[in-house]
Every structure is written in structure tokens, then in C-alpha cells.
Design a protein around this nucleic acid. Sequence first.
DNA 1: CGTTTAACCATTCTAGATAATCCCCTTGAT
DNA 2: ATCAAGGGGATTATCTAGAATGGTTAAACG
Lengths: 232, 232
Amino acid sequence: MPSASLKCDHGLRRQTLVESILADVFQGRLRAGTHLVTRELSERFGVSHTPIREALITLAGMGMVDLLPNRGAVVRRVSAREIREVCQVRRALECEATRAACGQIDLAELNDLADELRRLMTRAPTGAKFIARARAIDSRLHDLIADSSGNGFLAKEIGRLKTLFRAFRDVAWEHDQARNDFHRLAEESGEHLAIVQALLDNDARAASKAMARHIRSGYKYWSRAMNNGKAQ
Amino acid sequence: MPSASLKCDHGLRRQTLVESILADVFQGRLRAGTHLVTRELSERFGVSHTPIREALITLAGMGMVDLLPNRGAVVRRVSAREIREVCQVRRALECEATRAACGQIDLAELNDLADELRRLMTRAPTGAKFIARARAIDSRLHDLIADSSGNGFLAKEIGRLKTLFRAFRDVAWEHDQARNDFHRLAEESGEHLAIVQALLDNDARAASKAMARHIRSGYKYWSRAMNNGKAQ
DNA sequence: CGTTTAACCATTCTAGATAATCCCCTTGAT
DNA sequence: ATCAAGGGGATTATCTAGAATGGTTAAACG
């Protein structure tokens, strides 16, 4: 009877471990280049090294860490180039999803999103609530499009890239919170509306182009902010 | 001192294990739906269960097996629908790579490929040598395009999808070797030549379209053969 | 000062303990 | 008599723990 003390005996499964480590990366406790030492992590999370190792293998599969043979795992140090590359792939897939979703997507949902967007755009872009709402709409729209593409695999890949991009961006930015830029969020809303409008018009070509513009402009904003601010 | 007997002590690393298990799937020793029991595999490969488990986690990350919590891994039973979905994603990415490669790709290489293709197409499409050459050219062209896209991440993703598609197709076909169809191989050469030609003309739009046609027609051929033959 | 070697540290593997799932058989009720 | 529900045994995934391998560093010796 080793442990009546540890309630979390098997409460922590691999999935949870992966998410915990990911959260550490997102929140800046683990920065790019950090060497992930299994014993440290196992102590931190109260499990032995094997499940930790398994989580690291999963993360390596996701492309979040590099797994060097006999040298362990390090949080990937991503270059601006790589982020651009991920963005390009993401754009290709999101555009494909948009094209495919056109004509199949739920119009009621779309109209609802359009209303939300218009309401959001009439308000002054300030406050935490504005950020939350803008983020929620962004997430809802992208998810709706991916799910309406009729291609589950495509949707899964897009989700994967979203996580990857977010992680890479946060790592590169060293978790600067200044990215809550109201101007950019307002700009995004306009781009979102263009996508929704094109989808409502059942115009696959226009929708795909609007999506491409949206992702490109998001990348460009990020890229510029990165160079102006703490250049790496 | 437990084992002077085992020479292969640490000769088998995870990468090798993954490849060995993948080879078993490719060659039909492990069919779709097969439950992968860690102890069996550990005996087969002469290592303990932990490295096997790690290999299975890697394979799950690749999408080759499903990892059910507390139930272990099964070789994914893929539906025709899923193969179509993978194909669609692959098409989107290969087209993106083609567009990006246009103008950057090495023209000498391209000309060489065009020559090879023309030579291949003058011959009668028969014999093992023909198959080998057609396959080699296919591989060379796709790799050249991916590598010339200037996007390493994209190239990696394309490679991943290629493996995935091949595995899925082989599993679905139950490893029927009859897919060495000379008519299809000849047809493919024509499609390849169209891609090469468009790239030589520096016409990104045409090249991308030719690539889309190529992948679509490959899928359609596969799909038809699947329905005619051993329908599932 | 360069080379070699020894010791330390982290990864990776082996092995055994633990817990969860599944299957079959029994048991009780309708 | 039949079927549903529950329990026990076997099987297997998952975790813990510790041994061995390999890489790295630093000190000692030439």
C-alpha cells in the first residue's frame, strides 16, 4: 500500500499530462530551447518518468518539441521562417475547407455570426469583454467552417495547425501579452465578416479569397509586431 | 548480469521499431482492425513492452493506429470516405507546393525528368523494369516539387500524408498486388509530363491545375478499382 | 597545453506491480 | 424457461521503480 496520500494516483493520464506541459509552454513557464528533464517533470506532476516520456513522445509527434536520440527533449526554438511556413500550410487548408464548406454550411449559424460581428463592430473596441467576444467569434467561425467542410480529417489537421501556430507564436513572442491589440481585433472582425458574407452568397471563390486574405493579414500583423517589438 | 545472450540489446531504437511495425502493416502481416498486443510485439522484436508502447504512441500520432484508453492500440480500419478525405488534404497541399515551387524549381532537373518521361512513354508499358522506372519518376517529381516549394514544413506534411495514404490504401486493398496496372502507370506519366511542362513554362496556375488533376485521377482510379474488385 | 580517462547525469530499457477491461458464468426475477 | 444483472477470473494496458547505456564534463596525467 504505497500511497493513500496521492489521490491523483491515476487521475493524470497521458492526455492530461500533454495538456499540462502544453499549458506550461503557453504560459511561459517553459520557454523555447528549454531542456525538458524527465525527472524534474515527473516530480512536478507527481508521476514517474515513463508517463512523462510518453507525453514527450506525443508532443514530439505534434511538432512541439524536438526529441534528440539519447539527449532528450527540448522545446522547439522556432524561427520566424518556420512560423511563416506553418501559416502557409494553414492558409492552404483553411481555404480548402472554406471552398468545401461553401453550399453546405448552416446558414442560420452564419447569419447569427454575421449579426454578432456587426454588433461587435458598432461598439468601441475596448475592454476585456470585447477581446473575449472577438476571440469567441473567431473560434466559432473557424470551427464552423472546418466542421462544415464535410471532411473530418481536414478539420482535424486544421485544429492541429491552429494549436501549433498558437504555440509557436507564443513561444516566439516570449508570451508578450501586448498582442491584445484592439486595432487588429477590429480589423479581424471586418475580415471575418467578408468571409461570412461570401459564404452566405454561396460564392466559394470569394470566400476562399477572403479566408486567404484573413490568414495572410493575421500573419503580416504578427510578423510586423515581432520585428518592431522585441526583434529576435 | 542478465543477458550476454542478447546482442541486439539496444540495437533496436524507437525509430526502427516504428518502421518495423509499419512494414508489418504495409506487407499485410497486420491487417486493419488487428489488436496490437504489446507483449506479443515485445516478444516478436525482442524488447520489453515499454519501447513497444512508445512506438505505438508514435504511430498513433501519425494516425496509423487508434489508441483506446486502457484498451491498447488497433490498426485503423479506414473507410473509403477517410481515404478520400486524406486525398483531398493531400491535393490541397501538393497544389500549394506546386504553386510555390513554380519559378524556383531547378529547370535542369525538370528537363531531365521530362526526358525520362518521354523516353518512358515511347516504350511499351510492360515489365517489372517499367514499373520500377515509373515509380522512381513519380517519387522524384513529387519530392522535387515539395523540396522546391521553399517551405520545409509543407514538404514534411506532404511526406506524412504520402505515407498515410499509402498505408491506408494498402490496408483497404488488403495488400492486393494487382495495383501494378500498366494502363494506369502510363496514364500517370502523361499527367506527370503535364505538370513538368507547366512548371517549365513557369505557369503556376496551370501547374497547380495539372497537379490537382493528377491526384484526383489517381484517387478516382483507386476508388473505381476498389469498387469493381473486392468491394468492402 | 593537449589527450585520455573517470565520474556524473540524463535518457532509455527491463522488469515487476497495479488497475482496468472483458468475458463468461452464475443467480435471481419476471 | 429465458433473460438481465452481478461477480469472479483471466487478460492486458498502464504505472512504478531501478538497472544499464550513452553522452558530457572535468580532472589528471603525459
